[in-house]
């Protein structure tokens, strides 16, 4: 029974990891950019949520409605003003610029908020849980977060494959020069993609803020979890990313159960194992 609870917890947090991954994979798909500052942007969203709840006194989960548009705007401007200038054949500029961005965000947050651990309170929902079966309990908040994560991924799939918007993203991802012949302005498309990624990050950031203690330094670990979920799941598949996140979450949960100090290590080892045995991931998208 204990193991069932462990696995369920792992699955639920896997949803969160899948959200980290979705934002990362989206950007890579559309413009071949890996944003090293991805994790730090999640933390930034958490701090924006903190400021929002402090000034407006609202429930953090509702604060998503304010944090998301702010982050989307930041994403659009960031891409247009800075990151569009790094895109090209050379992979060093975007990598190094986003690395620099990561350093800047972390230290700016450190200056503004100090290294103190923070956490947002969502009220009674945090401790509420209900029994799924005899001896198996599910926390309401983790379940809510998982459901939202699945919904977000589903929404992204829908967006990409059933809307004109998504068609524009996919076309630009396929061929940046020919997409211009369709009337698409690459600078604008990329900026929209980044805005979308940061919207997903905003949701993830608020969830983090409520679920764990956060401080300016936890960004890189989130980047790594997102990245591992992408690789485990397989590039080019949103649902694969969900699977990857779940596998990562479950590995960590099992590792933690064996020995608390092994939680992160277990996740990394699962990732390395998949990399060794099936580098294309478990559910890679096969192109027609």
């Amino acid at each position: 029974m204990e193991w069932a609870n462990i696995v369920i917890q792992g699955v639920l947090i896997g949803g969160l990891y899948a959200m980290f991954a979705a934002g990362l994979a989206l950007i890579f798909g559309v413009m071949r950019l890996v944003n090293i500052a991805h994790g730090d942007l999640i933390v930034l969203a958490a701090y924006i949520a903190l400021m929002t709840t402090d000034t407006l006194g609202m429930n953090p989960l509702l604060a998503i409605l304010i944090v998301a548009p702010i982050m989307a705007a930041i994403g659009y401007c960031l891409q247009r003003a800075l990151l569009n200038r790094t895109l090209g054949d050379d992979l060093l500029p975007p990598l190094l610029v986003t690395f620099g961005l990561s350093v800047i965000i972390q230290n700016a947050l450190l200056e503004l908020f100090t290294a103190d651990s923070r956490r947002l309170s969502a009220g009674a929902i945090e401790v509420a849980s209900f029994p799924l079966a005899p001896g198996i309990w599910i926390g309401v908040l983790p379940l809510l977060q998982f459901v939202v994560a699945v919904a977000v991924i589903g929404a992204l799939q829908l967006l990409f494959y059933r809307t004109a918007f998504g068609r524009a993203f996919r076309a630009t991802a396929d061929d940046q020069s020919v997409s211009q012949l369709m009337g698409l302005d690459n600078r604008h498309v990329f900026a929209l993609a980044m805005a979308l990624s940061l919207t997903v990050i905003a949701i993830a950031g608020v969830f983090i803020a409520v679920r764990t203690n956060f401080d300016p330094a936890i960004g890189p670990a989130r980047l790594i979890f997102g990245f591992e979920a992408v690789i485990i799941g397989g590039l080019g598949s949103m649902w694969g990313t969900l699977a990857g996140g779940i596998i990562l979450g479950v590995s960590q949960a099992i590792g933690a159960q064996i020995n608390p100090g092994w939680q992160l290590l277990a996740g990394h080892l699962a990732f390395l194992l998949i990399l060794a045995l099936r580098p294309e991931g478990l559910f890679p998208k096969v192109k027609g």
Binding site: R85, P93, V97, F99, L101, V103, I104, Q106, N107
Partner: peptide, 14 residues
């Protein structure tokens, strides 16, 4: 100081 290092690196890169 670290923030400035990051900014300088970005500026140089661009």
């Amino acid at each position: 100081y670290l923030l400035m290092l990051g900014a300088v690196a970005i500026a140089v890169m661009l």
